[in-house]
Write a protein that binds this DNA or RNA. Structure first.
Lengths: 226, 226
DNA sequence: TGATTGTTGATAGTATTACTATTATATTTG
DNA sequence: CAAATATAATAGTAATACTATCAACAATCA
């Protein structure tokens, strides 16, 4: 099943890029290289010049694929949301009980991404690390409204909607399904970041997966009552 | 009481700045001006050159107060956590019931900051707006560990600890008080941002304060059960 | 086959950013 | 009044975030 998943090609809004990076060898090197480089030096220090050196190409060539590094970050995060939604659909298929389905969904949304041995150019573990540390920078900008209009955040919204629908199945009168789901997704990222860098803001012990347990607990209690 | 609060001077770790901006007229203009400017053009577009023009001073003069714009953002966020903690202490004083105290605390942490008529150089409404859109950029950097060592995030941690203590008063066996509190603080910022820019990720209606209601509900249910 | 088109690499150039350094002048303090 | 300090003005540098041009090569189409 994981192999099957790895071959699925995730769709990304085609106004995010100038030229589809999936369409060429150089394009795939740009994606693979940017995941490595952003993960290692951080988004602020990352430049197209450095990426060019890393992948033995040039700044100008990379600019033919992406207008700027912000668009590249949008691409990576969009790709991730698409991939996550695909995984979610797969992992919650054939579960009759909506409560169990919700539990499984929370696990998918909050669990640590492990190496999936898929051997594509996209390193999921590093990409997840980028999502944790950089993804909010993709929408915390002055261009968010224009980019939202163009549909750049559609994948994220779709994912949130999908899990919200399970919540409404369990409790059709629950007032805040979207808030709950987006709180869980963003919260899990923050908690993983805090566990690594600011441990006094969390109670998570490295190794143990208390983050998933915590959010399952929060969601089920919130949905059941009220 | 609000007047009293406005006169309190909030303490900020003095390694964040080169020269205390509270110590001079120019320093206060730097703070006031940066709040206006970051709120209006966003942290990415904000530069010390533009700030100099805004306050009729120069780039070089501002550099005598802050090493770089990142340190200035750290200053603003630290100041805000200090101010919020002060408000929290004030507003939860003399409430006997810990459940009521927790409810009041969640309100303080999540409610929209309104104009407090304090007439200081710090515009609280704009500062809150900056916290919502920019505060996570203060710690989502490669320098986070070094800066954490220096105590730059102490104010945030202290605030989280203080509310966690109330939770433990209610339920001494609750395993995740810090996670719960940091989830609420960060979550409330995200939800306010989403309500304005990405409404499909939230269920918040402008005007109504569903965000505070939502988090109160989540916290009380999580703390009571388990 | 030969002309056209598209892709990449190489190089260069510009405006802006993120600073640092120097000096003159004004203000405060001792 | 002298000394120290704060600020403004100016200039300069290295890096960043691009844009433009052109040559080399491959693919393709007529």
């Amino acid at each position: 099943m994981l192999e099957l998943l790895s071959r699925v090609n995730v769709q990304v809004n085609d106004n995010i890029y100038l030229k589809n990076p999936e369409s060429s060898e150089l394009g795939r090197k740009i994606i693979a290289g940017s995941i490595d480089l952003i993960d290692s030096i951080g988004f602020e220090c990352f430049t197209f010049r450095k990426l060019g050196q890393e992948i033995n190409s040039t700044e100008a060539s990379i600019y033919r694929y992406f207008e700027n590094k912000h668009k590249l970050l949008l691409y990576l995060t969009s790709w991730y949301w698409g991939w996550l939604e695909y995984r979610l659909v797969f992992q919650t298929a054939n579960i009759g009980s909506p409560v169990e389905r919700l539990e499984k969904a929370i696990t998918t949304l909050t669990e640590q991404v492990e190496d999936d041995n898929s051997f594509t150019h996209i390193n999921k573990v590093k990409l997840y690390h980028i999502l944790i540390a950089e993804s909010s920078k993709a929408y915390l900008t002055k261009s968010v409204d224009a980019e939202n209009q163009e549909g750049f955040f559609a994948g994220y919204k779709k994912l949130v909607d999908r899990v919200s629908a399970i919540i409404l199945e369990i409790n059709p009168t629950y007032k805040y399904p979207h808030m709950l789901v987006s709180t869980v997704i963003e919260g899990a990222h923050h908690q993983r970041y805090f566990a690594e860098h600011l441990p006094r803001l969390t109670d998570s012990i490295e190794g143990e997966d208390s983050i998933t347990e915590f959010y399952k607990n929060v969601v089920l209690n919130a949905v059941k009552t009220q």
